[in-house]
């Protein structure tokens, strides 16, 4: 369960988040939708305790991230990049992360297998392709077998096979009762996997509800999105 309650944030004198409020519930995939720069990553970074909100609170299972002991057993996060130092092998990266939360070394190989990187365990993270980095990041998120998953643009950089694999993985995770929150600017992709949708634009939540509720009378989620954000679908050419 994720609760974000009236979170605001100002950066360089510009307010980037205005009273952002939403929930992500167990057993459901919640899509966090918005154009680039709308505040998705900023919100997730506050949720993960990386950045501080100016006001408001973001809670995971009722507690702020910074108060979680052995957080990886509660929540797994995938942000930009893999989080692994370039010079480290995939396995060495996973092992130190596991050790920090008192998890056994064997978990490193288990999660590498889940994400299909067993053959690359001894490869240095700096030599990973974008898709492999994402998989390594996901492997890190899965180390503690957490009940909550938070993913920032998880399909970015994945090939079609990878996208399909990620989609199924996230659906299965939710089916097992996990809370899955993922951000994306890809509306058709989100419409494929999300049960609930939160739409953010210019730092404000403009819609939230089930996929059907947010789509409303519009033909697609994309149409609904443009109506909600009052952005013209301008031709870039």
């Amino acid at each position: 369960m994720i609760t974000v309650d009236r979170v605001s944030k100002t950066r360089s004198r510009t307010r980037i988040l205005h009273d952002v409020t939403f929930e992500a519930r167990p057993g459901r995939v919640t899509g966090f939708l918005g154009p680039n720069g709308a505040g998705k990553t900023s919100t997730l970074r506050i949720l993960l305790g990386l950045d501080r909100p100016e006001s408001g609170a973001a809670l995971i299972c009722g507690r702020p991230y910074r108060k979680l002991d052995r957080p990886l057993t509660t929540i797994g996060a995938l942000l930009d990049g893999s989080g692994a130092h370039r010079a480290r092998t995939a396995r060495a990266h996973l092992r130190w992360v596991a050790a920090s939360n008192g998890l056994p070394d064997s978990r490193a190989d288990e999660v590498l297998e889940i994400v299909g990187l067993t053959g690359d365990a001894r490869k240095r993270a700096g030599r990973f392709s974008l898709g492999m980095s994402r998989r390594l990041g996901l492997a890190t998120a899965l180390l503690g077998d957490p009940e909550v998953l938070v993913l920032d643009e998880p399909v970015n950089g994945l090939d079609p096979v990878g996208i399909r694999w990620m989609r199924e993985f996230l659906r299965n995770s939710a089916a097992q009762g996990r809370t899955v929150l993922l951000s994306s600017h890809l509306m058709s992709e989100l419409a494929e996997i999300a049960d609930d949708v939160i739409v953010i634009d210019k730092g404000r939540i403009v819609a939230r509800g089930s996929l059907a509720e947010v789509t409303g009378d519009h033909r697609t989620l994309e149409d609904a999105f443009f109506a909600l954000t009052a952005t013209e679908a301008v031709r870039p050419w």
Binding site: G49, L68, L79, D80, A84, A125
Partner: peptide
């Protein structure tokens, strides 16, 4: 951490593991 994600750093992994 990589040329694909210039803003990505190990610190993210560190702080999500030990907040």
């Amino acid at each position: 951490t990589s040329q694909h994600a210039p803003g990505a750093r190990q610190l993210t992994a560190t702080l999500t593991a030990v907040p």
